[in-house]
């Protein structure tokens, strides 16, 4: 049998995953519908969409951080931890296996570091603890690693700063400390949930640059969640666009930005103001209406109620992914029809 090169092996493969929220008083709500995502070592997949599209829920499902009302009725989350694969969707959220993955093999950084860093411990102690917990090294060794990590994430005077409490640091430094903590056990996958949204634009540029550089050094895969197309264009290798629980379009970032195929992706890109001279400025073309609540999602394509190109099958039938380029998929009836016509 021919050897498959390690790089081609996906670190994490989400297949056909759905997430349903149950509530005693109301009907179940399907927050994420049959999502397929693949993450490869050294590459960044950006999950982009507006608020309520299910991007954060997807990320939390990977770490099984959702609360009890969230069910994973279908699908697999296959994680390759080096010695074979494990289906995270089948693990119990608080099982030993899951706990050994969480924070060590897969770690996560959040929008607001203050909420995930303990305010009563120094950042150094918190990072030490992660290392000691997962790797069982002596506290002294752990501190050496911590200082090295803090240095790597660009915190100057790392040895002194390790003794600082989170509130003593600026937003940018706190996010750096958070990243250092996430990388403490050299995870195979880093999930970044809007890590730059709360930051100023100059700090955001620094953090994005840092993440890119750390990915080169550590070689981890990265799942980057954001609502900002500019940030996607900066950091992603691949992009998946979500709308109301559906991944409507996914593919190579250059490909998707060059020729977006799904009407939602197109509309999203037309909503972002571009830097133009006054003479070249065009009126923005926003998407009509507002995102319906997941309870009122159209039975067929989720975008039906706002799509300018809607036709017969859209309201009733959910479109299947259509391949519109190499590895470039979009869920739209229009594309399926064009493809059928081309084949005929």
């Amino acid at each position: 049998m021919p050897q498959i090169p390690m790089a081609a092996e996906p670190i994490l493969a989400i297949k056909n995953m759905s997430i349903t929220f149950t509530s005693p008083d109301e009907a179940d709500v399907e927050a994420v519908r049959q999502v397929d995502l693949t993450l490869t070592a050294g590459k960044t997949l950006a999950l982009v969409g507006e608020s309520g599209c299910g991007k954060s829920v997807t990320a939390r499902a990977i770490l099984r951080l959702l609360d009890k009302s969230a069910l994973l009725p279908s699908g697999e989350i296959l994680f390759n931890h080096g010695q074979g694969t494990v289906d995270i969707a089948r693990l119990k959220p608080d099982s030993l296996a899951m706990r050994s993955i969480r924070g060590a093999e897969i770690s996560m950084i959040f929008q607001e570091p203050m909420t995930s860093l303990s305010p009563v411990h120094t950042i150094g102690d918190q990072i030490d603890e992660v290392i000691v917990l997962h790797e069982g090294v002596s506290p002294k060794k752990a501190r050496e690693r911590t200082v090295h990590l803090l240095d790597q994430v660009g915190i100057s005077g790392a040895r002194e700063r390790a003794n600082a409490y989170p509130f003593e640091l600026s937003g940018g430094l706190r996010q750096r400390a958070m990243i250092a903590m996430a990388l403490a056990c050299t995870p195979k996958l880093l999930i970044a949930d809007e890590p730059t949204t709360a930051l100023d634009v100059t700090t955001q540029a620094q953090i994005l640059d840092l993440l890119r550089q750390l990915q080169d050094d550590f070689g981890m895969a990265m799942l980057f969640i954001t609502h900002d197309l500019g940030v996607v264009a900066e950091i992603a290798d691949e992009v998946a666009v979500m709308y109301l629980g559906d991944v409507v379009e996914q593919g190579d970032v250059y490909e998707v930005f060059r020729s977006p195929q799904h009407p939602y992706t197109q509309a999203l890109m037309n909503s972002v103001p571009h830097l133009r001279r006054k003479a070249d400025r065009q009126r923005l073309s926003p998407i009509k209406g507002t995102v319906p609540s997941p309870k009122d999602r159209p039975a067929g394509c989720a975008f039906t109620s706002r799509c300018p190109y809607v036709f017969e099958p859209c309201a009733g039938t959910r479109p299947a992914p259509t391949e519109v380029g190499a590895g470039h998929l979009a869920r739209c009836h229009l594309l399926a029809r064009t493809k059928m016509e081309a084949l005929a």
Partner: peptide, 10 residues
């Protein structure tokens, strides 16, 4: 006016 179908919101 057409951009905002308020009637569907709640």
């Amino acid at each position: 006016l057409m951009e905002t179908p308020v009637s569907e919101i709640a």
